[in-house]
């Protein structure tokens, strides 16, 4: 029996949804996201005794999740898939995916979601880790093994890209 198994189980329960969230946003697919979570934690389990506290466990987990997501994206064809999640079959604790009933807002959110889906792997991972996970640039730089300046520049460029595309589509007003 692996030593520190209780710690692993606590870690799993604590981070499973976070890793799922990252993978889900990267891949836009529930089953793939669950597979990613399983693979991430399986790798963590195999190396659990090797963790010497040199870097946070979360950094390791996020890094594996992002890399596996890249692999999935490259392997699968990039057909845009708006997943029809049947929420009755999922044990969802909270369905925060309930868009506001206002049609205009729903349209805006759909457009933004499309823009996020169309980002490059690098842009998507930085955007997701920053916007949704609330990680600092330093943490993201450690996860992606990039310089802090590069991460910051990527985030800025990603926001610019989304902004320009939303302006073109009329979701955001153009400058006068």
């Amino acid at each position: 029996m692996m030593k520190g198994r209780e710690n692993f189980e606590d870690c799993y329960i604590k981070y499973a949804n976070k890793i799922y969230g990252v993978a889900y946003k990267m891949l836009n697919n529930h089953d793939d996201a669950v597979d990613i979570v399983q693979e991430v934690f399986l790798r963590a389990y195999k190396n659990w005794n090797n963790f010497k506290g040199l870097s946070k466990i979360s950094t390791y987990l996020y890094r594996i999740a992002v890399n596996l997501s890249y692999d999935y994206l490259r392997r699968k064809s990039k057909t845009k898939k708006i997943e029809n999640l049947n929420y009755e079959n999922l044990s969802i604790l909270s369905s925060k995916n309930n868009f506001e009933s206002d049609f205009h807002n729903e349209n805006i959110l759909n457009e933004i979601k499309n823009e996020i889906d169309n980002l490059t792997e690098k842009q998507k991972s930085v955007f997701i880790l920053k916007t949704y996970e609330g990680l600092t640039y330093e943490e993201i730089a450690r996860i992606l093994k990039k310089r802090i300046g590069t991460v910051k520049a990527t985030y800025f460029q990603t926001l610019q890209k989304i902004r320009e595309n939303l302006k073109r589509k009329g979701v955001i007003e153009n400058e006068m």
């Binding site: 799922y20 969230g21 399983q38 902004r163």
Partner: peptide, 29 residues
């Protein structure tokens, strides 16, 4: 962009869902 992006969240799955998957990981590990 940032504020509206945050409204698009992924589902949050119940703890029992993940606990059911945990044994598989431990066995394989």
């Amino acid at each position: 962009i940032i504020n509206n992006s945050k409204k698009i969240e992924s589902p949050i799955l119940e703890e029992n869902f993940w606990k059911a998957k945990l044994n598989f990981i431990i066995e394989k590990g």
